[in-house]
Computed example of a mutant assay.
Amino acid sequence: MNLPGKEGTIIKGYSGFYYVLSEGTIFTCSLRGKFRQKKMEQTFLPGDRVVISLLEGDKGVIEEVLPRKNELLRPTIANVDQALLVFSLTSPDPDFALIDRLLLFTIEEQIEPILIWTKSDLATEECIEKAKESFVQGQIKQVIVSAETMNGIEAVKNLLRQRITVLAGPSGAGKSSLLNALQPGLALKTGEVSKKTGRGRHTTRHVELLHLSFDALVADTPGFSTLNLPALTAPQLGELFPEIVDLMGQCRFNSCLHRTEPDCAVQEAVEKGLIHQRRYESYLLFLEELINQDRRKPKGRKE
């Protein structure tokens, strides 16, 4: 007998079944027949809000998928509230170019980015300040943590409560160690950093929302080291740099790309130290990449 429907969140899908968290209980759900028809193109992702009808025990049937507020392709997950960008302060050293790319992706998807700096127990104060300084003007939230000393762990817990969060960052940065510190007993596999390459080994293989005991849903995503830029035009790039957004409309030219144009508010801010030089150099590098991509696009033939 089917019981009245209730809302829940898909935390993972496996072998045709979907595991739905609803009011603290995980239900193993199948799909209603209409979703299994070949003509239906509905997809079901971790993070999807669904309506289920309950069967006996912890079984259920997915009756409806509620509208998504967003959807990521990498990782494939829906309704993300925020992204923790996890980078180690040392061993390996932070990859600032990758951080800037990840910031572009999260801001472009209208997902709040938060920088989590790990391994603070191994880093000097000078190293910590150097890592943080270039993101201050962009008003990016930053938290310094150590899975060994538990420094900053409570602050991260407070950020995660009642939200869907993705963790992103390179292998070896300490994502799995961070999760193990957030919830002892989780026993996620951690990866060692190769002495030869200075890079970590991938320890996470699929997308799954982990239900943590303090009312948080977190996706530990596979590590990666390179990313292409989002599909942007050159004028749109500045809209993804919070430091530049604050100066929109203050340049002489509305079409200013903040590169060589006269009376550019962004260039003036860099000269005054109001925008960090390293962040501006990343902007210029990405701008050149977008311009080159546009040049390589095939032109339509004239009739």
Rank of each mutant, 00 (worst) to 15 (best):
D100Y: 10
T124Y: 06
I26H: 01
G174M: 10
H211R: 11
V156H: 01
V20A: 06
K119H: 13
L182Q: 03
A231R: 04
E271C: 12
L182P: 06
G138N: 11
D100E: 14
Q139V: 08
E208D: 06
L212R: 02
G174N: 05
S194D: 03
L72I: 02
P235N: 10
Q110K: 15
N151P: 07
S225Y: 12
L284W: 12
A78E: 01
L212P: 05
L285H: 14
G60H: 04
R163T: 09
L103P: 00
P46N: 02
F214W: 08
G33K: 13
G249Y: 05
D220C: 06
Q42I: 13
L287M: 09
G169A: 05
R32D: 06
N151R: 12
V143C: 03
I140L: 12
G191F: 00
A269D: 10
A231S: 13
L179G: 05
R252M: 11
F105T: 02
L285F: 11
Q142F: 01
Q139F: 01
E64D: 14
R32L: 12
Q110M: 11
E112H: 08
I77E: 00
E7L: 15
M248T: 09
A269Y: 08
I140N: 01
G57C: 08
L240T: 02
A131N: 03
C127S: 13
G174P: 03
E133R: 10
M1Y: 09
L274D: 13
N228L: 07
G5W: 11
E148I: 15
P222Q: 12
E268A: 15
V80M: 04
V156D: 01
I11W: 01
K196S: 11
T106V: 09
T149W: 09
L232N: 05
A123W: 07
S213R: 07
R49D: 04
A234V: 12
R201E: 02
A168W: 00
K195V: 13
E64V: 05
L72D: 03
I275W: 03
R201T: 09
V143H: 06
Y280K: 10
E56H: 10
E108G: 03
D215M: 04
T197D: 04
V218E: 10
D93R: 11
S53F: 01
R49Y: 06
W117A: 02
K119W: 07
E63N: 13
N70E: 11
E71H: 12
E64G: 08
S91C: 10
L104H: 00
H276G: 10
I52Y: 05
L274V: 02
M1R: 08
E23K: 13
G169C: 01
Q137E: 14
V166T: 12
V143M: 08
P298D: 07
S171A: 10
K39Q: 15
L66A: 11
L167I: 09
T221M: 05
I26W: 00
F224S: 04
R161Q: 15
Q37N: 14
A265Y: 04
M40L: 12
E192S: 14
L72M: 12
G249P: 06
E125V: 15
S15A: 15
N151D: 12
A219Q: 00
L55S: 13
I99Q: 09
K141I: 10
M1E: 05
Q236D: 10
P75Q: 06
P94G: 03
L188R: 04
L240D: 00
V61S: 09
G33N: 12
N292R: 14
G33Q: 07
K141D: 09
A181V: 03
R279K: 05
Y18I: 13
N70P: 14
V86N: 01
L240W: 04
